[in-house]
C-alpha cells in the first residue's frame, strides 16, 4: 500500500509527440478535461493536469493508439 499513499513530490506534466500523434481523438474520449481535438483537426491539451485529473491523464496515455502521450511526474518518480 505504501506506493499509493506516498505524497506527490512533482507536478505532473503531459506532452504529446506530434510526430506520432495521428489525431484519433481517443485521448479526448478518455480525458475530456485535458484533451480536445479541435474543429481545425488540431489537438489541444493542458500540459499540467491537476492532482484530481491524473487518473484521466493516465487513461488517455494508456489508450493512445499511437502511444504518443507522455505523462511524467505526479507520482513517486
Amino acid at each position: 500500500m505504501s506506493r499509493l499513499r506516498r505524497k506527490s513530490r512533482t507536478r505532473a506534466r503531459l506532452s504529446v509527440d506530434n510526430e506520432r500523434c495521428e489525431l484519433f481523438g481517443i485521448c479526448e474520449w478518455e480525458a475530456p478535461a485535458l484533451f480536445e481535438l479541435g474543429r481545425d483537426g488540431r489537438l489541444r491539451y493542458r500540459r499540467q493536469p491537476a492532482a484530481g485529473e491524473l487518473t484521466q491523464a493516465a487513461a488517455a496515455a494508456r489508450c493512445c493508439p499511437m502511444q504518443a502521450i507522455e505523462l511524467r511526474g505526479g507520482d513517486d518518480e
Binding site: L23, G25, W29, L37, R39
Partner: peptide, 9 residues
C-alpha cells in the same frame, strides 16, 4: 471522421 466517431460512440 474522428469527431463523428466520438459523437456516435
Amino acid at each position: 471522421r474522428p469527431h463523428a466517431m466520438m459523437r456516435w460512440t
